[in-house]
Simulated scan of single mutants.
Amino acid sequence: MDHAITAKPKTSLLLIFLVVLTWLLSVPVPTPALANGLAGTPPMGWNSWNQVRCHDLTEDVVRRAADALADTGLRDAGYEYVVVDDCWQAATRAADGSLQPDPKRFPHGIADLADYVHSRGLLFGIYAVPGSRTCAMANDAYPASGIGSLGHERQDAETFDRWGVDYLKYDWCYADTVDGLDRKAAFEKMRDELAALPRPIVYAISEYGVSSPWTWARPVANLWRTTDDLFATWDSVLATIDRQAAVAVHSGSPGGWNDPDMLQVGNGTLTADESRAHFSVWAVLNAPLFAGTDPAKLSGTDLATLGNAEAITVDQDFAGSQGRRLAAGPGYQVWGKPLSDGGFAVVLLNTGSTTATVSAVIPGAWNVRDLWAHRDVGTAVSASLRPHAAALLKLTPR
């Protein structure tokens, strides 16, 4: 990358000039992706974990989430997968070895719940693990035994097919230390079982970036986690952003996406500025977008963040390169990626504790649009930003 950066800090002013030449024009050539024809763009939806975690998960929670996605317009904005995370399972398998849902919290069964989700114009996802125990069994004292897929991979895949599952989150959960499994081989085994099904099922794997899955997972899964769990704090968001800088070249269409974890918009201590910054970087990263809060209780501000059609368009637009970090220094980061219309998307991020102006000079002549303000802002790639705020800009050739 040819670039020049000059920083001129003042009391509350940080001015950064960035010139990007060959870097943004280079297109990486990742290894071939999983050939299941799915996840041509980063998947979007809702996942139960960040909202209710384990013991509060019920079929009513899932039904209400599906209703809210439809009623708030998030479904029409692209949030199509409703994913039931850990703790849906009964304490043991059935006599024939098949998985079964908790009878008190899911009294109507998973197939009935999937039918309901489908009736709302949405797709249904579920959680499983390659080892013998789930994460909640280890971390949430979930009272179960033998509900992992180890030794039941084909049976579980066929069960998911019969229930009408469209998306599988397959979570590692100590399967190396507890069961002695190898990550790549274990994830490949379920990949092969899913491939044998008549029903197409998006395959999402999660081993938290421990074995650098971006280097081997493209032929194995449609998306793979690049980090440990994301929490609803600015420090966690920023640490996760920092970890994405080294993995960008391994993500891409069709069907193979780096996953920096589910969105925390609307959760924890995140301010409106922090939530928009979080969403802005995820959009430029072509990250899967999974809401992890009660969509029926979103504030108007958080709903506008999750439903920002212009930002979502950036996330769903892959033109040969996931977003990369172009520059970083004390109090600032600049991220960017090419767009399919010949333009660029740029995130100007103030990571500091005071208001700052962050500016970038990109070769060429551009019309600049602020995708949070929803207005054209001239020709300068620049924004005055409050602490922990970001500008998401679209640059269109003039």
Score class of each variant (00 low, 15 high):
Phe160Thr: 05
Asn222Met: 07
Glu59Gly: 07
Asp115Ser: 15
Asn267Gly: 00
Ala128Trp: 08
Thr11Trp: 10
Lys104Ser: 09
Tyr116Asn: 09
Cys87Arg: 01
Val178Asn: 07
Ala7Ser: 13
Arg324Asn: 01
His388Trp: 01
Arg199Trp: 06
Glu80His: 09
Ile201Arg: 03
His374Lys: 13
Ala141Glu: 12
Val247Cys: 01
Tyr142Ile: 04
Gly37His: 01
Arg63Leu: 00
Gly125Gln: 06
Pro9Arg: 15
Ala389Arg: 05
Ser236Tyr: 02
Gly109Glu: 06
Asn350Gln: 06
Ala94Trp: 03
Ile201Asp: 01
Leu150Cys: 05
Val178Leu: 13
Ala217Asp: 10
Ser211Val: 03
Val334Ile: 15
Val346Asn: 04
Leu395Thr: 11
Gly131Val: 11
Pro30Leu: 10
Cys173His: 15
Pro143Met: 07
Trp372Pro: 05
Val62Gln: 02
Val284Ile: 15
Gly266Asn: 13
Ala91Tyr: 01
Arg75Gly: 15
Val61Arg: 14
Trp216Glu: 12
Ala68Pro: 00
Val334Asn: 04
Gly180Ile: 11
Asp259Ala: 08
Leu339Gln: 14
Cys173Phe: 08
Asp76Lys: 07
Ile126His: 00
Thr240Val: 13
Leu150Glu: 07
Leu289Val: 13
Gly125Val: 11
Asp302Trp: 06
Val358Thr: 06
Leu150Pro: 07
Thr354Lys: 11
Ala283Met: 11
Pro295Cys: 12
Leu38Lys: 03
Val284Ser: 01
Asn286Leu: 03
Ser236Glu: 12
Leu194Ala: 12
Gly125Ile: 08
Glu207Trp: 08
Asp370Glu: 04
Trp49Ser: 07
Leu339Asn: 12
Asp376Lys: 08
Asp229Thr: 12
